[in-house]
Amino acid sequence: MFYVDLAISGIVFGCMYALMAVGLTLVYGMLRILHIAHAAVFALGAYVTVLVANASGSILIGFIAALIATPLCGVAIYRLLYQPLLHYRPDVPMIASIGLLVLMQDGFRILFGEQGVTFLKNPLAIETVDIAGITLNLAQIAVLIVTIIIFLALHLFTTQTRIGVAWRATVSNPRIAASFGVDAIRVRYLNFAIGSALAGVAGGLIALLNNFVDPTIGYVVSYKALAIIVLGGLGSVRGTLIASLFLGVIESYGTIFIGSYLNRDAIAFLALILILMARPQGFTGARTA
């Protein structure tokens, strides 16, 4: 049971990483920008979920609000920050992105307080279900179900719809996609909207799990998601999913077996370094920049 408990913890970590990192890898695939401010979009999702849920009395409404706010924020970041900087070297928008992350984090602190916010009512974090001797709380189950639904939907969207196929084509090769008549600008907006919505949902789910959102909530995810997209092979969605789950499970087992020497983040980065030494191209060996 113990090992199953650990595996489930790891998969829950992995789901969160996947929701975060897919948006990041898509932006990189399309624009070659390391979208650090994605972590702030994630934090925004977490804040909006908690605040709207508290105001409306419904966690579901909180999530819907986050699903509206985060794509708008993502698209605004593209339009107002990245687009004017696209003709500079890729490190210029990246630095702007770091600046935006710091600005937004301090913005959250000033607007919503240093102490962070919590759900007034969050039964999901407390109520548990026993399945064959394994205790899971409802928030963990919600994370698993929501992540599966989202990625199935995303898969159908990118294989079954015209705009979805155009999007996939643009991420994997922007120039050739454009020569086939794909509207690159429209696809970019779509890209930021969907990537940000995923981060927003991830933020809301993390808020549910922790019952707590503070201004620095995006901090860890910001650098760990970067590590994951490198591990997944930059620009590859499949690789990112594999890397997310892999890292989550490694962290979970690592916490127990080497946890008294290294903390979870250190374990994750140690694993990352070892894997990249063996496979510099990442798991899937997709193109690199």
Binding site: L6, S9, G10, V220, T255, S260, N263
Partner: peptide, 17 residues
């Protein structure tokens, strides 16, 4: 003994342990 980082808010593996 279990150890965690200050940025951590997710303690699933520790709870299992």
């Amino acid at each position: 003994k279990y150890n965690y980082s200050l940025q951590d808010r997710q303690f699933g593996p520790i709870v299992a342990g």
